[in-house]
């Protein structure tokens, strides 16, 4: 009896050892790190150390291919010439593409459809009454168009005149009206897909007499549905989630700030814009010179837009974000860094 029992015991010991080895191989990695060499911040400012990689699109300073800082204050006035009757002609070239894969948030890559290589496309700016002529080239693999909000002839509406892929061309032309801030976007079906992938931009029509001087900027409120489930994974002002959180928008104490805000979020019915430590005068669609509200909160539906004007009395860091907190916690939040007025600032 003794020998077989011993043999069996040995067989079982072997089996147990094999099982233990298997378990070790399959076990999750240990939480303790050998080498603690990176840190990151929590919301409350606590410092956390890690031996691994930091996943922090919020507070860790990072950049991706698209630069929201450059976009923020970049206005395109076009190639300017004068017609015999004295009208100013502004000519623009906009090229559509749909094959780019771009890093839209740190480490996240997404197939963006672009006007002139960026999301949003270039901010087109003209003065009321100018003749705007846009040479549109479709270098994508699908049909695209340009559909501008505003007043124009039916044939330039960019809906029933699809422009073919692989170099198709179309020239749009109209008088710049009405005064205000308007979106433009592709209007090919399925429309939601073409917009959600990034085919949109901002078109500003200035009044002839101009607006009071201000620090002007454009914020397109948009979202990215990176896994195509009909819900946005990321939200932002100007595409890159949390960008203005770690790259605060620098403005100056006492100086008038004018923000052209356009809501291009798809899938979610509304978006909104809340400013901290201040209120703004709000001009819906920018079409009127009298503000409709003095508030710190406006709600915007799809392509709803307006102009916000404010100036800060006190220096410091002020948050601005969607008060639909889901959006702000998925990227649509940023910081105004108000510098003290004085010669040393700048």
């Amino acid at each position: 009896m003794a020998r077989p029992a011993a043999g069996r015991a040995m067989a079982m010991a072997l089996a147990a050892a094999a099982a233990a080895a298997l378990l070790l191989a399959l076990a999750p990695p240990p939480g303790q790190a050998q080498q603690e060499d990176r840190t990151f911040l929590t919301h409350s400012g606590a410092v956390v150390r890690t031996s691994g990689e930091v996943l922090d699109p919020m507070y860790a300073v990072s950049t991706v291919e698209f630069d929201p800082d450059a976009y923020l204050r970049e206005f395109h006035y076009g190639t300017v010439s004068e017609l015999p009757d004295g009208t100013v002609l502004r000519e623009f070239t906009i090229v559509a593409e749909d094959g780019l894969v771009m890093e839209v948030a740190p480490g996240v890559f997404y197939n963006v459809w672009t006007f002139n290589g960026t999301v949003p496309g270039p901010t087109i700016r003209a003065t009321e009454g100018d003749l705007v002529r846009i040479h549109f080239v479709n270098n994508g693999s699908k049909e695209h168009t340009l559909h501008f909000h505003g007043i124009h002839e039916a044939r330039f509406d960019g809906v029933f005149e699809p422009v073919g892929p692989g170099g198709g061309r179309f020239t749009y032309e109209w008088r710049a009206e009405p005064v205000g801030v308007h979106p433009y976007h592709c209007h090919v079906m399925p429309l939601e897909e073409h917009i959600a992938h990034g085919l949109y931009g901002v078109y500003i029509v200035d009044p002839k007499e101009g607006r009071p001087p201000a620090d002007e900027m454009v914020m397109v409120l948009n979202g990215l549905d990176t896994d195509f489930d009909g819900e946005n994974n990321f939200y932002a002002a100007n595409t890159v989630p949390f960008h203005y959180q770690h790259h605060p928008v620098r403005i100056q104490q006492g100086e008038l700030v004018r923000v052209y805000v356009v809501n291009m979020v798809e899938f979610d019915p509304v978006n909104n814009f809340h400013l901290h430590g201040n209120l703004y005068h709000y001009y819906p669609t920018g079409t009127d010179t009298v503000p409709s509200a003095y508030t710190d909160m406006v709600t915007l539906s799809q392509t709803e837009r307006g102009i916000m004007e404010f100036s800060y009395d006190y220096p410091g860091r002020y948050l601005f974000h969607a008060h639909k907190v889901e959006f702000s916690e998925k990227g649509w939040s940023g910081v105004f860094l108000v510098g003290e007025s004085g010669p040393e600032y700048g």
Binding site: P29, G31, A33, R38, F40, L41, T42, H43, V48, T50, S51, G52, E53, V54, L55, D56, P57, M58, Y59, A60, A105, P106, G107, V108, F234, P241, F242, E326, E329, K330, G331
Partner: peptide, 21 residues
């Protein structure tokens, strides 16, 4: 794959991935 973002209740959180993503 690479792990790029972590969230809790569908809200993005600062996080770390060890040993790497």
């Amino acid at each position: 794959v690479s792990v790029a973002v972590a969230d809790v209740n569908d809200r993005i959180q600062p996080a770390a991935v060890e040993p790497d993503g």
